[in-house]
Design a protein around this nucleic acid. Structure first.
Lengths: 112, 112
DNA sequence: CCGTATCCTGTCGGATACTG
DNA sequence: CAGTATCCGACAGGATACGG
């Protein structure tokens, strides 16, 4: 991915922001945080409006970055479950603070 | 701007992320945080590689969002100085935490 | 059920030239 | 010095169809 936040400048928070700033990314993390481990289809339903392509793309990326895990159950039909890793949960803690700030500034509306 | 993070879903942290996730945005905030109030030309020099268009665009946006202030001094030639508002500084506090996390994950490299 | 592959369009953002 | 105006190519990402 292209470094959006800092255009490739090697700044740690920039790297992290480039990960989080992708479309739908926060949305996905938020759902995994509130709903716990979730299957692909369920995610697609919850993240309203996302395309299959985008969802898989975001999930692959988040997995590679160590934010989420992917559990594949080779049943018929197969079941794939995604959830937050420890790293992902650490992240959520701080995002929560950011959210608190944001609520103060923009008002508190909870995503359903 | 289009809501990237949550694709228009009214989530406070999403709104905030959509602001911060724009290209160069963090970079600019970071410089204003470390260097204090800075003039346009100086900013353009420090944010290496940014185009005039992008810089003004980002600055206008950040100003509108209340993150930075713009001080115009009508001398000849005119001097325009940008700096963090109180809101901007509140933000930096949390970004700092995010940075701490990021340094632990990606190693600490300081942007010059 | 959980994806991959392909096509196609809209927009982002760089380059460039010009002003008060 | 501190911007605005305009043009234009690249690519992100939606729609669609198909596969294990």
């Amino acid at each position: 991915m292209i470094a959006r936040s800092t255009k490739g400048n090697p700044c740690p928070v920039g790297i992290l922001m480039d990960i989080l700033s992708g479309p739908w990314t926060l949305y996905i993390l938020w759902i995994l945080s509130t709903a716990g481990p979730t299957r692909f289809g369920e995610l697609k339903r919850r993240v309203e409006g996302i395309s299959t392509k985008m969802l898989t793309e975001r999930l692959r990326m988040l997995e590679q970055e160590g934010m989420i895990f992917r559990h594949y159950e080779p049943t018929v039909p197969p079941q794939v479950t995604y959830g937050l890793t420890e790293r992902g949960q650490e992240l959520i803690v701080i995002l929560d603070q950011l959210n608190t700030l944001a609520e103060r500034w923009y008002g508190s509306s909870t995503p359903q």
